[in-house]
C-alpha cells in the first residue's frame, strides 16, 4: 500500500511541476501587472521603475528560476497588490474554502445517494420521473441566479435568514450551502440512479431478495456499495469543479475563501498570489485524487488484487 501511495505521490509531483511551469508562463502572457497596479496616470518611467523593483524587467526564464528557488525555500513571494506574503493570504483563505467545499460535498453525497437510490428502485415510476426532472433542473440552473433569488426570497421577503455573511451562526451557512450543492447534487443523483439501476438488476440482488432480506438493506447496504465506484469518481470530479461555484458563493455571500482570492489575483495580475493559490489548490486536488484511488481499493477487492 505504501509503495502504491509513493508511486501516486511521485506521479502527482510530476503533474504539479508541469502545472507550476504552465501557470508561471501563462500568467505572464496575460500582460504587464504594472499597467493594472499603478495609478491610471502612471507614465512609462514609473512603469519601468515598478517593473525593475518587482524583478519583472528580467528575462522570464530568470524570473522562473528565482521563483522556483524561492518556492523550494518556502518563499512564495509577496502580493504585488496587497504587499503581504502570498502564502499567508492563501492559507488564511483556505480553511473557509475547505469547510464550505467538504461540507457541501458531504451533503451532496448523502442526499444524492438517498434520492438516486429511491429513483432507481422503480425506474419509470412517477417518483423516478420527478427525481430525474428535478435533478436535471438542479444541475442546469445558474448558481448566480439562484443565489440572488434565494437572498431576495429567504432574506428580504421572508426574513428567515441573513442575506450574507460568514460566522458561527448556522443560518449564515444555509443559503450558501443550499446554492453550492445544487449543481453537484443534480449531477450525482443522475449517476447514482444509473449506477443503481444496473446494480439492482444484478444476480446478487435477486439472490438477496430470495433470501428474504429487507429492501432497505438490499438497496443501501449491498447494492449501493457495489454502485459506489462511479459515484465516487464523479463526486471527486464535482468537488474539483466546485471551485467555480465557490467563486460565486464567496463573492455573493461574503465568504473569505480561496476562490474569490484567486479571481481577484488573476484580475489584478497579482502573479505571486495566483501562483501560490493555484499551487496550494493543486496540492489539495492531487491529495483528493490519491484518497479517491485509496477509496477504490477499500471498496473493491478486485482492484486490490490487480
Amino acid at each position: 500500500m505504501l509503495r502504491y501511495i509513493g508511486k501516486r505521490a511521485l506521479q502527482s509531483a510530476v503533474g504539479l511541476s508541469v502545472l507550476i511551469i504552465a501557470v508561471f508562463f501563462l500568467a505572464r502572457l496575460t500582460g504587464d501587472p504594472a499597467k493594472l497596479l499603478l495609478p491610471i496616470n502612471a507614465d512609462q518611467a514609473l512603469i519601468d521603475e515598478f517593473r525593475a523593483r518587482e524583478g519583472l524587467d528580467r528575462p522570464v526564464i530568470e524570473q522562473f528560476g528565482v521563483y522556483v528557488w524561492n518556492v523550494m525555500h518556502g518563499d512564495f513571494g509577496t502580493s504585488l497588490r496587497r504587499h503581504r506574503p502570498a502564502l499567508d493570504m492563501v492559507l488564511e483563505a483556505y480553511p473557509v474554502t475547505l469547510q464550505l467545499a467538504f461540507t457541501a460535498m458531504a451533503l451532496v453525497l448523502v442526499s444524492a445517494s438517498l434520492v438516486g437510490s429511491v429513483a432507481a428502485y422503480r425506474p419509470g415510476s412517477a417518483v423516478d420521473r420527478t427525481v430525474t426532472v428535478s435533478s436535471l433542473i438542479s444541475a442546469s440552473v445558474p448558481d448566480f441566479w439562484v443565489a440572488i433569488s434565494a437572498i431576495l426570497l429567504f432574506a428580504v421577503t421572508l426574513q428567515w435568514l441573513p442575506t450574507s455573511g460568514y460566522g458561527s451562526d448556522i443560518r449564515f451557512w444555509l443559503l450558501p450551502l443550499g446554492v453550492l450543492v445544487l449543481r453537484p447534487f443534480g449531477m450525482l443523483v443522475q449517476v447514482v440512479r444509473a449506477s443503481m439501476i444496473a446494480t439492482l438488476s444484478s444476480a446478487f440482488v435477486r439472490t438477496a431478495r430470495i433470501k428474504g432480506m429487507s429492501e432497505g438493506r438490499i438497496i443501501y447496504v449491498h447494492a449501493l456499495r457495489n454502485a459506489l465506484l462511479p459515484i465516487i469518481t464523479v463526486a471527486a470530479d464535482q468537488t474539483v469543479g466546485m471551485i467555480n461555484g465557490l467563486v460565486i458563493i464567496e463573492t455573493i455571500f461574503g465568504f473569505p475563501g480561496i476562490g474569490k482570492l484567486m479571481i481577484d489575483a488573476v484580475m489584478a495580475r497579482d502573479f505571486p498570489v495566483v501562483q501560490a493559490s493555484i499551487l496550494v489548490t493543486a496540492i489539495a486536488i492531487f491529495t483528493l485524487f490519491i484518497l479517491v484511488d485509496l477509496a477504490y481499493v477499500a471498496l473493491d477487492p478486485r482492484i486490490r488484487h490487480r
Binding site: Q99, T103, M105, A106, L109, Y166, G167, S168, L224
Partner: peptide, 25 residues
C-alpha cells in the same frame, strides 16, 4: 456506507466547530 455517513457527520461537525464569531448591527 457507514464510513461515508460518519465522514459526512464529521465534516458538518468540524465546520460547525470552526465557525468564527459574527454579530448583527
Amino acid at each position: 456506507m457507514l464510513n461515508l455517513k460518519r465522514l459526512a457527520f464529521l465534516n458538518i461537525a468540524t465546520a460547525a466547530g470552526l465557525f468564527a464569531g459574527h454579530g448583527f448591527a
